[in-house]
Computed example of a mutant assay.
Amino acid sequence: MSINLSEPIKIVFNEIEIDDYLPSIKFKIDINIKQFTHLLTYSGEIWIDCKVWDRFSKGLNEGKDTTLNDMDDIFIIEIIKNNEFIEFTWSIKRKDPEGNVMTAGYSSKITDDVYSVIRNEFINYPKWW
């Protein structure tokens, strides 16, 4: 199972494992961001709690502010809706045991059409829980 988004940035969620004990899904994430003359590529693996997935999908479906984060709070997608615009934000922050830190992020205003695509990808993801 996978989710493929092409706007505002290219994000692919590929399901690689599930955990029935603590209902959660492990995804391989691939992100490609092209902005001006710059390119940012990220690839990693994250676990998302199914309750968090449900909360995010419900927020998208109801047109409310909503957040998707992994179980370690290093990977975050936020959708912020207000009367004037819709904002999509992605960030990652990872710290190793020696204190080295990697951070990356992206923020963009999106259209209603892009929002609809994001919403449909997440709410139509086949749930097993």
Rank of each mutant, 00 (worst) to 15 (best):
F13A: 06
P8M: 13
I79V: 13
I11M: 07
T103D: 14
G105C: 05
I123G: 05
D30A: 07
K26V: 02
E7L: 12
I29Q: 12
K51A: 10
D30V: 03
E15P: 00
I76A: 07
N83P: 06
E45G: 08
D30N: 11
I79L: 10
S107P: 04
P97M: 09
W128V: 06
N124Y: 01
G99M: 02
L60T: 05
K10Q: 13
N4R: 12
L60H: 03
G105M: 02
V52G: 06
S57H: 05
N100L: 15
K64S: 13
I31H: 03
L39S: 10
I74R: 11
S43A: 09
I16F: 13
K93M: 14
L5M: 05
S57G: 13
K64P: 02
E121R: 06
Y106W: 10
I31T: 09
D73S: 09
D70S: 01
L68N: 03
I77P: 00
I92K: 15
E45H: 05
M71N: 15
I46H: 01
F36A: 14
T67L: 12
A104K: 11
Y115H: 08
F122Q: 03
I11G: 00
K58S: 12
E121P: 00
K10T: 10
K10E: 14
D49H: 08
F36S: 13
I76V: 10
M71L: 07
I31S: 12
G99I: 02
W128H: 11
K81C: 10
